[in-house]
Computed example of a mutant assay.
Amino acid sequence: MIERPRPIEVTEGERAFEDVLRTVEEMNTPDGHKAELIRGKIVVSAWSRLRYFIPMESLREQLTEHVAADQVATHAPFLFSFPSVGRAYGPDLYVVDRSAFLTEERHGDGEALSLVAEFTSTSTRDADWREKLQVHGQLVPVYLVVDMQEDEITCFSDPSPQGYRAHRTVSFGTPLPVPAPFSCEIDTTAFKAAAG
């Protein structure tokens, strides 16, 4: 299968959000692929490339030192839903309340996320920089876009109904300040080796 995402059109109003979300959750995607609900469409795309693992794990390890006791930093493959905008994403890496996993549902509540990090690829870059930025910018305290094509990382913070009010971009190899609730500095040295 090629890396390009494959959208499946979902006509607005045709099915309730929960029905569409259930379809996404129950899809038998090929190994190495995930299904998300983006722009009202079910999109199947490849998980991150192997070379992304080192920077992804470096980021997870650094964040783990700064998460609250009732939270976890992980890159486990789970969907998080945003019912008010009819979206469901499987973040590359995220920090979430542990209570989000105490459910029989197959997806977590997007409101339990305190940080989302997306590692861009040619197939997902547009969604990471546009749609996900817009949706997360109204709710998630910190959104990191690790732009693997441009060799830089951007930290968005201070969400509002109009989107994030603050952001900062640094090149790989430069420390990145991450504001509250983490209040830490991310060492991006490991990101340079994986850059494309």
Rank of each mutant, 00 (worst) to 15 (best):
Y143S: 13
D126F: 05
I42H: 05
T11N: 10
Y94M: 10
Q134Y: 02
F82V: 10
F182K: 01
Q138A: 13
E131C: 04
E185M: 06
L79A: 14
M56A: 14
L139F: 01
Q134E: 11
T29V: 15
H167S: 15
D128Y: 03
E152W: 00
A112Q: 09
R165W: 00
S99F: 01
Q71D: 08
Y164T: 08
E118Q: 13
P181N: 08
D109S: 13
E118I: 11
G108V: 02
H33W: 05
P159K: 03
H107I: 02
L144F: 05
R168I: 03
P30N: 06
A73Q: 04
S123Y: 00
S171H: 12
A193F: 05
Y164C: 06
P77S: 14
W47F: 08
A73Y: 03
H136R: 07
T154R: 05
P77W: 01
G40K: 05
M27Q: 13
G110V: 02
M56L: 13
R15E: 15
Y164W: 02
V67Q: 01
D92R: 00
S123T: 10
P179T: 08
A180S: 14
I186H: 05
F101A: 11
P5K: 02
D109W: 01
R4A: 15
Q162L: 09
T64Y: 02
R6P: 06
T154S: 11
G163V: 05
M148F: 00
Q162A: 14
R15K: 14
E185P: 04
M56D: 08
R125F: 00
E18P: 04
L21C: 12
Y52K: 10
R130E: 11
F53D: 15
G173E: 04
A69Q: 08
F191Y: 12
Q162D: 15
S99E: 12
D97W: 00
Y164A: 09
Y52A: 14
E3G: 12
R4S: 14
T174E: 14
F182P: 05
H107E: 09
F53R: 13
L113Q: 04
T174C: 07
L102E: 13
R165A: 10
P5Y: 03
V85C: 09
E61F: 06
A193L: 10
A76G: 11
E14H: 08
F156W: 07
S84H: 06
D187A: 11
R168P: 02
D126E: 13
